[in-house]
């Protein structure tokens, strides 16, 4: 498995400068995605996973945001060094993104047909109207939108939440991107619709061969879809490994505790073991290991003072914790 990664994020760090101070949104995020791989970036709200995704496409508003360091290598080239014009060529064509809220991501005053065909016209140089329409209908049909031809003239409000999200995916996929970034694509949807979307993404990988970066807070979704998982906490990737390894044999205390604290439908749990405390404020992060105030395995005199580095346990398995490899 020493194939060259499609995308590699190395020690990415992003700050936000706001009126009241500096927010360390991402301080050290590293992971890689190979071709045809689905990577789950799992973490709670405010852990920096969305900011990481937006930095890949350079969609962060600067200021207040500022990329402080790190590299984002896409097919061997650093995206952070590209000009705005070059990155626009990549956006939508090579890498595309779908957002959490399908309601506000579609423009309510434009027809579905117009919005879906926009990226096709922009990136595929299809001049012929007939051809554009044919392609638009084709992708909508692929997404399982019934009567796609008729639906072209409809407006987003006539679509249900699931259909809107599928339309968003259709737009993102219209140019057969090499990488799809999906930011909590199913969070606002019901479970039965979530399942449709997950299946759609699985088929996408199979048929088109795209890689997917799935951002989620739900270990269930990640387990069902992902090959590899990177767990983020307070701006850092704390654990990285194959989905089976991370979920079946978690190493980092945060992953361990989090998995123990979620209720499950497949297992009877007498009592959940919650993680004490709450997620730290990104303007005032703890010293040393960021998880130490909440960690049941904390080592006195070490965890609160020394910041742990990500260590490789086995091939393709990284953990950022003092418990390992000392």
């Amino acid at each position: 498995m020493d194939e060259k990664p499609l995308l590699e994020v190395k020690n990415l760090s992003v700050n936000f400068y706001i009126r009241h101070g500096v927010v360390n949104a991402v301080t050290d995020a590293s992971f890689k995605i190979r071709k045809n791989e689905i990577l789950g970036l799992v973490g709670e709200s405010g852990c920096g996973k969305s900011v990481t995704a937006l930095s890949i496409l350079r969609l962060l508003l600067e200021p207040p945001a500022k990329i402080m360091g790190g590299r984002i290598l896409y097919k061997g080239e650093d995206l952070l060094e590209k000009t705005e014009k070059e990155i626009r060529e990549i956006r939508g064509k090579e890498i595309s993104m779908i957002f959490q809220n399908p309601l506000s991501s579609l423009n309510p005053v434009l027809t579905i047909g117009f919005q879906v065909s926009e990226p096709i016209i922009l990136h595929q140089n299809l001049k012929n109207d007939e051809e554009v329409k044919r392609r638009t209908v084709e992708i909508l049909r692929q997404m399982g939108i019934p009567e796609a031809e008729k639906r072209l003239k409809e407006y987003p409000h006539a679509f249900s939440g699931g259909m809107r999200q599928r339309t968003m995916i259709a737009m993102a996929l219209s140019c057969n991107p090499s990488l799809l970034i999906a930011d909590e694509p199913t969070t606002s949807l019901d479970v039965t619709i979530q399942l449709q979307i997950l299946k759609l993404m699985r088929n996408l990988r199979r048929d088109v061969g795209s890689s997917i970066l799935l951002i989620t807070h739900d270990f269930g979704v990640a387990a069902q879809l992902c090959d590899t998982i990177a767990v983020m906490y307070a701006g850092e990737t704390v654990e990285y490994g194959s989905a089976v390894d991370v979920l079946k044999d978690p190493k980092h205390p945060y992953t361990k505790c989090l998995l123990r604290s979620i209720p499950r439908i497949d297992v009877d749990i007498e009592r959940l073991e919650p993680i004490k405390g709450s997620v730290p404020n990104a303007m005032n992060l703890p010293d040393g290991c960021r998880f130490h105030p909440r960690c049941p395995y904390m080592i006195e005199d070490t965890c609160e003072k020394i910041k742990p580095e990500a260590r490789q346990l086995t091939e393709g398995r990284l953990v950022r914790c003092h418990l390992y490899g000392r």
């Binding site: 709670e44 709200s45 405010g46 807070h217 739900d218 505790c257 989090l258 604290s261 979620i262 209720p263 009592r271 959940l272 073991e273 919650p274 993680i275 004490k276 709450s278 997620v279 909440r294």
Partner: peptide
């Protein structure tokens, strides 16, 4: 947040 849900459920 996922890590806080269990506290409230308990």
């Amino acid at each position: 947040d996922v890590s806080v849900r269990a506290q409230i459920l308990n």
